[in-house]
Simulated scan of single mutants.
Amino acid sequence: MNVGIYASSTGRILRQLRGDHRTVAMILLVPTLLMVLLYFLYVNVPPTPGQPPLFDRIAITMLGILPFVVMFLITSIAMQRERGSGTLERLLTTPMAKLDLLGGYGTAFSLAAAAQAGLACLVTFGLLGLTIAGSVGWVVLIAVVDAVLGVSLGLLCSAFARTEFQAVQFMPVVVIPQLFLCGLLVPRDQLPQWLEWISNVMPLSYAVDALQQVARHPGATALMWRDLAVVAGFAVVALCLAAATLRRRTP
């Protein structure tokens, strides 16, 4: 990776984002608005005795899931748009390496993800009254790492798509099974054993586990750090695989 080319690639993508107001609005506002919708969905549901309010239990998990889903969708479509317009092929005829290009995408969208996570947490904790035992800062960190995972997987999946529609088709294959098995619908230890084994190799499961650790404990725990490291490791591996599978020429 060439640092100068990588920085130039990051700057180019950030300038493109700045000029695409719809994408910026989707990145920044969609997770926050969905959290508001979730609040009003559960605001009148009576709490179970001895349990935290249902909104608190679900919202802390969704703060990690929504950035992952949104950034996966946006990144996979954005990369495919670069390929379809011929921009990607022109860039890869220059001295720019594949990892320079994808690293620039990862960094630019990660910065956008940090703003996204900060805004969603500000509204959820400040206005909607979500309460947890741990620090809000850890929630923001986990949400950002989860969004970076979505970016990396989006870049990887886009390498196998030829159109934007095909890029979107990877969602039910890559994203939805993780939503089902991450512990959002059913605790992972209550899944059938074979499904629990599958959930153990899905990165979103570890992001949800890390958020649950923050919700229950006032300080950072060893399990939280382990789960966060697993998610970050998946993101790095996905980015490297995306660089390895990225085609220099559009079929």
Rank of each mutant, 00 (worst) to 15 (best):
R188F: 00
I176S: 02
V144E: 01
F125G: 05
L185Q: 02
G150H: 00
G150I: 04
V175M: 10
D146A: 13
G150V: 01
Q166Y: 04
W197C: 08
N200S: 13
S152E: 04
A143P: 05
N200I: 05
V186G: 06
Q190A: 15
P192L: 09
V151F: 01
L127M: 07
V136R: 03
L179P: 08
Q169N: 13
R162P: 01
Q190F: 10
A117E: 05
P172G: 09
T131Y: 00
T131L: 01
Y206F: 15
T124I: 02
L204F: 08
V201A: 10
A207Q: 03
A159G: 09
L149R: 04
Q193R: 14
D227Q: 11
Y206V: 11
V173R: 07
L122C: 12
L223M: 14
R216T: 14
E196Q: 15
Y206C: 14
Q193C: 12
G137F: 00
Y206D: 06
W197V: 13
Q166V: 09
L155D: 01
A222G: 12
A147Y: 07
R162W: 06
T124H: 01
A220W: 03
L195N: 03
V148P: 01
L155A: 08
L141C: 13
M202L: 15
Q190N: 10
A207N: 03
G219C: 00
M224N: 08
Y206L: 13
V201S: 00
V140T: 11
C157D: 00
S152I: 01
I142C: 04
W138F: 15
L195A: 08
I142A: 14
A222V: 10
H217E: 12
H217R: 10
W194E: 12
L184D: 07
G219D: 11
C157S: 15
V175L: 13
A120N: 00
L153V: 12
V174C: 11
L181W: 06
T124S: 07
G129F: 04
A143C: 10
A159R: 00
G129D: 05
D189T: 08
V151S: 04
H217S: 15
V173C: 09
G137A: 09
G134F: 05
C121K: 04
L184I: 08
V140G: 05
D227K: 06
V145N: 03
A215L: 01
L185N: 15
L153N: 11
A161C: 06
T124C: 05
A133N: 05
G118H: 07
T131S: 13
V136Q: 09
S135R: 04
S152D: 03
Q178H: 09
A210P: 04
A220Q: 12
V144Y: 05
F160A: 15
P172M: 06
T163G: 10
W225F: 15
L127F: 03
H217M: 13
L149W: 06
A220R: 09
L111A: 11
